[in-house]
Structures are given as C-alpha cells and as structure tokens.
C-alpha cells in the first residue's frame, strides 16, 4: 500500500513538473534578465530581415529606435519603433504585461531600447513579449 502511494505521488509529481514546464516557455517568460543574442537599430533590423529570408526567429534580440506610436489595439500594449529613413515600415513590439507602468512614461519621439522575442517579418518586423531595456 505504501509502495502504491509512493508510486502515485511520483506520478503526480512528474505530471506537475510537466504541467509547470508546459505552461511556461519563452513567450510568457520575463525577458528582463535574458541576454539578447543580437543588437540592432530598428532600421537595420527591418533591412536585414527584408533582404535575408534565412533569419533565426525565436531569438531574444535588442532593438533601438524612435517611438512612432504606443497603442492598445486588441487590448494589448504595443510600441511601434520607426527607423530613421524607412517609411511605412516599423518594428511592432507586443509588450509584456509587466511593462505597463514603464510604458506610461513613454512618448512618441522617445529614443528607446527594447528587448523581445523575434517572430519574423511581414511588412513590419514582429516581436513578442517585449521589455524596455533602458531609455537611451
């Protein structure tokens, strides 16, 4: 009976760990303490991804740029970073919910550095789970 209970406990324990790991992942992880693999300017990132079809998505990268817009479309806080010369192309940063208080201080035209999970490019570059690294 004791052996059966231990076995049951072990199963529940393993299942709990599995669930914990399964519910986490980089998409929900706080990236504040994660070191970015690469650093770009917004302009450079857009140009690089436009010309290079073989980029590594799912990387944590840091991007510097000028804030073009802060919005809450779809009830998600998003910052659009603009390049210096590229028109109508942006880096769309879907912000981690931990950033709400910091984002209130961000204004259009501010120069900032954002870290996030690179997803890829459509017309604009898309990054998820972003955090503001620091004001520049």
């Amino acid at each position: 009976m004791v052996r059966f209970s231990s076995f049951l406990f072990a199963i529940v324990f393993i299942f709990s760990i599995f669930l914990f790991v399964g519910c986490g992942g980089r998409i929900n992880e706080d990236l504040s303490s994660v070191e970015p693999t690469k650093r770009y300017s917004a302009e450079n990132l857009i140009s690089t991804l436009q010309s290079n079809k073989e980029y590594n998505s799912e990387e944590v990268i840091a991007v510097s740029g000028i804030v073009y817009e802060v919005n809450s479309i779809n009830k998600r806080i998003t910052i659009l970073l603009a390049g210096d010369t590229l028109k109508e192309r942006f880096v769309i940063c879907d912000m981690n919910t931990s950033q709400i208080s910091i984002i209130k201080t961000i204004r259009k035209g501010d120069s900032i550095l954002i870290k996030g999970l690179l997803k890829g490019i459509l017309k604009d570059v898309i990054m998820l789970n972003c955090v503001i690294e620091k004001d520049q």
């Binding site: 790991v21 399964g22 519910c23 992942g25 998409i27 799912e58 997803k119 890829g120 459509l122 898309i126």
Partner: peptide, 17 residues
Amino acid sequence: VSMLMNAFIFEKALMRE
C-alpha cells in the same frame, strides 16, 4: 491578409509547440 504562424499565442507552451 498575411500572418506569421509562430506569432500565435496559446495558454500553454506545450500547445504552441
């Protein structure tokens, strides 16, 4: 319309995987 398939957000990372 165009969308990146890896930009879908799931409740669980395992589902996304």
